[in-house]
Design a protein around this nucleic acid. Sequence first.
DNA 1: TCACTGACCGTGG
DNA 2: ACCACGGCCAGTG
Length: 115
Amino acid sequence: MKPTNNQDTITWIEKVYAMVRQIPKGKVSTYGTIADHIGVKATSRMVGWAMNASHHAKPAVPAHRVVNRNGVLTGKHHFATPTLMQELLEAEGIQIIDDQIQDFKNHYWSPHENK
DNA sequence: TCACTGACCGTGG
DNA sequence: ACCACGGCCAGTG
């Protein structure tokens, strides 16, 4: 398509949003994996910061499907409520105990499927 | 305008 | 095995 109002100002942040939205329901991804797949220009910290900005982006990015390397809901505290992230993940069939995703690697989603 | 921080991860000692 | 530090972009004070 040809977005007239769009320009080449697309930054790695846009890619972060796009990739996070590609995460299928019931699956989760990590900051490092996303950052690595986006490009070496971005690091895990940048992804986390982008997620914070995602609150301002549209459509809303399912940041609740993004967790840290340990499979822990590190960013849960940044959601509307500190339990919202866990609630959303549990609603997708993911079991979480003490902010720790159970069988995390089994729910782990890798962008290798996407080109 | 300059400097620091941020939802992290990897490597070195 | 544990502790400490660097790296990258953008926004805020």
